[in-house]
Amino acid sequence: MDKQIVCINWGTRYGAPYINRLYRMVCANTTPPFRFVAFTDTRDGVDPGVECFDLPEMPGFMPERTIGQWPKSRLWAAELADLKGPFLFLDLDVAITGSLDPFFEFGAPQDVVLARNVAKPLNRLGQTSIYRMPVGALASLQDVFAADPQGVADKYRFEQHFVTKNAPNGIKFWPTGWVRHFRIECIPTFPLNYFKDTRPPKGTRVVIFAGSLNPPDAIKGQYNDAVPHLSPKQHILRALRSKHKLRAMRQYFRPANWVARIWDQAEGN
C-alpha cells in the first residue's frame, strides 16, 4: 500500500507552524517513500517538502450551532487532487510517539479505519483524528451532507459520528493501544494526577487531543485557558470554590514534558 499522509488546514487557528510540525513528526516516524499532502487555505511558510493543494470545495454550507469539525467533509469528495487509493489522515494537533508504518499495513486497502472514541466506549463510535480510507470512499456521505448540512449536523453533532453510522461498507477500528486520547488515557486518574506525571501508555503510536485540551495546554499543564495551571494546593483551593468540586479536582495534571520534547524536536529545537 502506498503511503499517502493527508492533513487539512483552514482559518487562523493552526497554519504553517502546525503543518510543518506534523510533517516533521511524520518524517521521523515513517519509513520512506511517502507523500505528505496538505489541503490548506494558506501556503505561506509551509515547508517545501509538503505538497500543498487548495482546500476542496465545501459541500453545501458550513452548519451553525454545531461543535463537530464539519469542514473535514471536504475530504470525502470523489476526487481529491491527484491522490489515488488509500490515504492516512492526521489532525494537525496530534503527537506522534511511534512508527506510523503499521497504519498502512492494517486491514485491506478498501477499508475505512477510524480510531475508537474512548469518551463513549459503549457506543462503538469512531474518532477521526487519525483515519485511513480510499479516496472517494465517503463520496455518497458528502452528497447526503450537502443536501442538508444543518439537518445532518443537528442530528449527529460530530462529523465522526456521521461517518461511523453511515459509511457505505461500515468502518473498522485501529488495534487497541495504537491511538490514545490524552485527557482520558494519558493523565493519571484522580488522585494520582497530583503525584504522577502524564505519559502515553506503552505501545502508543499517536496521541490525540480531542476537545478543548490541545498540545500547548498539555505542555503548560492546563485543561484550557479558562483553567490555567496552578500549584496543587492552589488548584485544590480553586476547585473547592467551584460548583462542580470533584470534576474540578480531577482537572489537575502536571505539565506534559514529553509532549514538549516531541514538539521541540519537530521544530528543530
Rank of each mutant, 00 (worst) to 15 (best):
D111K: 00
S140Y: 03
G45Y: 09
Y14V: 07
D225G: 11
F39D: 08
K196G: 10
D41E: 12
F182Q: 06
P215V: 01
F190P: 05
L55Y: 05
D93V: 06
P56R: 07
V37K: 01
R35W: 09
F53P: 06
Q142K: 12
V259L: 10
A266H: 00
G151F: 04
A16L: 03
G151N: 04
R65E: 08
F89P: 08
P102L: 06
D217W: 10
P191V: 01
Y23V: 07
Q127A: 14
F190L: 06
A137P: 00
I171R: 00
P17V: 06
A147N: 02
P59M: 11
G221E: 00
G11F: 06
V26P: 05
Y156W: 11
R124K: 09
R43W: 14
R65V: 09
C52T: 09
N29F: 14
V135W: 02
Q234R: 15
D148F: 01
Q150V: 04
G107C: 05
K196T: 13
Q265S: 14
A226T: 08
A28P: 11
Y18F: 08
V163K: 00
N9G: 04
V179W: 02
F158I: 15
M62P: 07
K245T: 06
G268E: 04
Q251A: 05
N123F: 12
T97G: 06
P134E: 03
G49C: 02
V26C: 06
A266T: 02
Q127L: 14
T198C: 10
K202I: 13
A210T: 15
R180N: 10
Q127E: 15
P215F: 02
K243W: 08
D225W: 10
W258V: 05
V152Y: 00
V152M: 02
T30M: 10
A266K: 00
L90M: 12
P175Q: 06
P56S: 09
P215E: 05
D217V: 07
T97D: 08
I236G: 01
T12R: 15
L237P: 08
T40I: 14
L88A: 07
L213G: 06
T176Y: 13
L55I: 07
F53L: 12
E159T: 11
Q251H: 09
K155P: 09
G107A: 11
T189G: 14
V46N: 05
E57Y: 12
A78K: 15
T42M: 11
F182P: 05
N20H: 03
F158V: 15
A119M: 11
W10G: 02
L88I: 05
M62N: 14
L138H: 01
Q150H: 01
I130S: 13
L122P: 04
G151T: 08
F158Q: 15
E51N: 08
P48Y: 03
A108H: 14
L100S: 12
S212G: 09
Q222V: 01
A266N: 02
E267N: 11
